[in-house]
Amino acid sequence: MAIMLLGAVSTGQVAAQQSTATGAPGKVAALDSVRPFNVPAQPLDTAIYALAAQAGIDLLVGDAQLQGRTGHAVQGNYSIAAALSQLLDGSGIRFEHNQAQGSKRPSVQLFQLPVHEGNVLSLSATQVNAAHPGDWVYQAPRSVNVVSREQLDRNPPRHAADMLEETTGVYSAVSQQDPGLSVNIRGIQDYGRVNMSVDGMRQNYQQSGHQQRNGTLYVDPDLLSQVVIEKGATSTMGGAGVIGGIANFRTLEASDLLTDGKEIGGR
C-alpha cells in the first residue's frame, strides 16, 4: 500500500498528517525513510530545491509563493517528511505526497496556506469559468442578434413583426391585414438582399404586393424556439447572394420541450 503524507506548517508548529492511497506496494519510496540532510538556513526558493536534491524527490511548486520567505536549517538525519516540515515551519507553505503514475521517485506538491491578517483572510487566487449556450454570439466575428424563446414568452407578439421590435437595426413593415414578414436589416430588405429562412431553408420567394414588399415570410411565433439575425454580408450558411443579412427562424425541437431526464414533455 503506497503511503500519502500531508504536511501543514504554521508558526511554532510542525505537523504531518498521514493517509493511505491505493497503489502497488514497493513501487515508490515512502516519505518516512530517514536520510542525512545538510541544508543551511537560506531563502526558501533555494532551500527547498536543495532539500529535494538531497532527499531524491521530485518537487512540484504549483501556486506556492516561495520568494521572500526563509527556510529553516535542516541538518542531521531526518525522514523526508520531517525534513520538509522543519524546513517549511512558519513559511505558510504545506506539502502533500503526490505520486506520479509510473514514477520511481516520490513526488511532493507544495501548496499555499491561507494567511490571516487581523480580521482579514487572504486566500490564493480562484478561477471560475462559466458558459451559457447563448454566449456564442459574443464570440462571433460579426454582428449577430438572437431572439430567444424566453423573450417571446415574456413579450408575446400580437403580430409576427413584433418579434423583431427589440432587435437593433431590424424591423418589418406591419399590416394588420397581412401577417407576413418582410425583414428589413439596416435599411435593406426584399428578395435577393435579405435571406429569410425557416430552419435554414429560404422562404422569401418573389412576390409583389402592397408596401413594395417583394419577398414575404409567413411563420407562427408559437412554433419557434429562437430567431437568429446575422447583419451584413456573410459567408455562413444561407449567406450566398445577400447583402443585407440573414434572418433564420428556428422551429421547436424535442430538446426545447423535454427537461433533463424526462421522456415526455410539452408546452
Rank of each mutant, 00 (worst) to 15 (best):
S107F: 03
S124W: 03
R105Q: 08
W136F: 09
I185D: 08
M163S: 00
P156Y: 09
F37P: 02
G244R: 02
G118V: 03
P156W: 00
T251N: 05
S91N: 05
V183T: 13
S122E: 11
R158W: 04
V147L: 05
V128L: 13
N145F: 13
L113E: 15
L87A: 10
L59Y: 08
E165C: 02
S79W: 08
G76D: 01
A82I: 02
I243A: 14
S182W: 00
S124N: 01
Q151H: 04
R158F: 02
T167D: 05
N248R: 07
A161V: 08
V219M: 09
R94V: 07
Y205A: 11
V9N: 15
G7L: 03
N204F: 09
V183E: 07
N145M: 09
Q109E: 00
S10G: 13
L123K: 11
L59T: 01
L5D: 05
Q86I: 13
R193H: 15
Y49H: 13
M4N: 10
L59K: 07
A125S: 14
P106N: 07
G232P: 06
Q101P: 11
T46Q: 00
R105W: 06
R202E: 12
N155C: 01
H210W: 11
V183W: 07
P43F: 11
A50W: 01
G215L: 07
V144G: 05
V34M: 13
Q17H: 11
H210Y: 14
S208E: 08
A21Y: 03
G26H: 07
Q207S: 07
F95K: 11
V128P: 07
M163H: 11
V9K: 14
S175Q: 01
T216K: 06
S175W: 03
A161H: 09
N204M: 02
Y171M: 10
P179E: 09
I93S: 05
D220K: 02
P179F: 00
P156R: 13
Q42H: 04
N77M: 09
Q203N: 05
D256F: 07
A8C: 14
V144F: 02
T251P: 12
S122G: 12
L113I: 12
A100K: 08
A125M: 13
T168V: 08
G26A: 05
Y205C: 04
E96S: 06
T70F: 02
Q65E: 08
P36R: 09
A64Q: 00
S172G: 04
V228G: 03
E253R: 12
L252H: 05
G261Q: 11
Q99N: 09
L66I: 01
F249L: 04
N214Y: 10
A240D: 15
K231E: 13
G68I: 02
